[in-house]
Every structure is written in C-alpha cells, then in structure tokens.
C-alpha cells in the first residue's frame, strides 16, 4: 500500500488519556514516545487499549526540526 505520508512507524500503545472530545494516545515507537490526538470515536472504532499494536503516520510537512 502506497501513501503520501513519508513517515510510517509501527508501535505499541502505552497510555490513553481520555478527554471530553479527544483522547491523547501515547505510542512507544522503538523506545520513542509519540503522542497522537484522536477523537474518542476513533479510540472506540480502532478498539485500541494499552498494549495494542498500531501504526503511527506523520506527514513530513508536520515534522519540526530544532537544533541545540
């Protein structure tokens, strides 16, 4: 499957913090924690919970670089 997003990483859900509309899902991608803000609806749909295997997709246009 080809998609335009340049960054696709497989990871494992380590935390789900539920809000009123959105949930912040923390995913361990090879030791790095990636946060994803998704709707509560999406959490239900995906049926994810802590420990679920997921893909994280990040468009390169959303990646900010910084230097020390």
């Amino acid at each position: 499957m080809k998609l335009s997003a340049r960054n696709v990483w497989k990871g494992k859900v380590v935390e789900i913090e539920l809000g009123s509309v959105n949930a912040v899902v923390k995913v361990d991608v090879g030791g790095i924690i990636v946060s994803s803000m998704i709707t509560l609806d999406a959490v239900k749909d995906l049926g994810i919970s802590v420990g679920s295997a997921v893909y994280t997709v990040v468009k390169s246009s959303s990646v900010i670089l910084g230097v020390d």
């Binding site: 499957m1 998609l3 335009s4 997003a5 709707t39 999406a42 997709v57 468009k59 959303s62």
Partner: peptide, 16 residues
C-alpha cells in the same frame, strides 16, 4: 499539511 493521500485501490486499514 494535514491531508494524507493513498493510492485509489489501496485497502486503507482502520485508522483514527
């Protein structure tokens, strides 16, 4: 910046 494109025939798995 927020739109991801897939091939038309790709079977896009369930996503958030």
């Amino acid at each position: 910046e927020d739109v991801v494109l897939f091939e038309a025939d790709a079977i896009v798995p369930l996503t958030s």
